[in-house]
Computed example of a mutant assay.
Amino acid sequence: MTQTSNAETAAWSILETASRRAGLDPSGAELMRLGENALFRLPGSIVARVSRPGQLTAAKREVAVARWLEANHVPAVQTWPDIDQPIEVDGQAVTWWKELPPHRPGTAFTVATALCRLHDLPPPTDFDIGRLDPFVRLSERIDRASTLTEPDRIWMRTHLIELKARYEELPKGLPETVVHGDAWIGNVVTTDDGEAVLLDLERCSIGPPEWDLTSTAVKAFTLAGITADDYNTFVGMYKHDVTAWPGFETLRDIREFRMTCMAAQVAGENPHRRDEVLLRLACLRDEHGPRPWTWTAVP
């Protein structure tokens, strides 16, 4: 049995235990995705999310944020009602959500639309949403990069220290707000009635709004995943171009490093992804030419 199938078997077991505790029937559930989290669709348009170990606090915050956004009429994924969640099973958190209505992938414009709504909200007062940590879990992901050589992991740890120091020296920017924390195009969808809906709320916190804006700039100028015209549409909607801010390169470099650490973790579980990690490391070390770079998505 492979590591991936071991992870899937464990996720199914946790889902069944948590569902019974929540008073739900997991019979007929189907696996939607197995990646950073495991997503299952249950009968009745319920989606269950099984986190990795050690994410109970993040899951509690995500549930609280979803309920807060719903109360403030900001379109986002909604928790399934009448369940005291999250439920912890063997150190992993399980949460339940309403399945999204028919929708299509987000665009630069819909990301900007969703971020305008989020960034305009005053912070919640009935729970602690926490402060942004752009380095959360990176050390653990480097440690799990078992397919890399020790010199590569040493370079990553050293680079992490350098990025943390640069982050502490960020110049003054926009006033801090509630930020999404992972505001790339894949975390916003558009419903058939034209509503821009935020997904994946586990990193919502207080921080510089430039962090959210940087994700779309990286999509455009690091990865060429959207066009310059798309990016200009994003800027026109949000009314701010983060690439003109002196701190942009620091946030861009942190975002690129996060993407590399995620790929390194995945490669530790699936060695076939190792070449992608080596490519990303070469890019970060200025060994693969200037941006944009051609990176292949990893789960």
Rank of each mutant, 00 (worst) to 15 (best):
V235C: 07
T214R: 00
V179N: 12
G225W: 08
V242E: 04
T222E: 15
K239E: 13
A196N: 01
T191W: 03
T191F: 04
E169P: 04
V197A: 04
D241H: 09
A244Y: 08
V235I: 14
Y231S: 01
F234W: 02
I206D: 09
G247P: 10
P209C: 11
Y231L: 01
G186M: 00
K172E: 15
A196Y: 09
D241S: 07
T227S: 15
E202G: 01
A228G: 14
E195L: 12
E169N: 15
L199D: 02
L198E: 11
E176M: 12
E202Y: 02
A244M: 13
G236S: 11
T222V: 15
G181F: 15
A220D: 08
E195C: 09
I226N: 05
P175C: 11
W184I: 00
I206K: 04
D241K: 07
D230E: 08
L201G: 11
T222R: 15
I185R: 10
G247I: 07
T233M: 09
L201A: 07
A220P: 05
T243N: 08
V189F: 00
G173R: 13
E169R: 15
Y238S: 04
P246C: 05
T190R: 14
A220M: 09
D193A: 04
L213A: 02
A183R: 02
W245Q: 05
H180Y: 12
F221G: 06
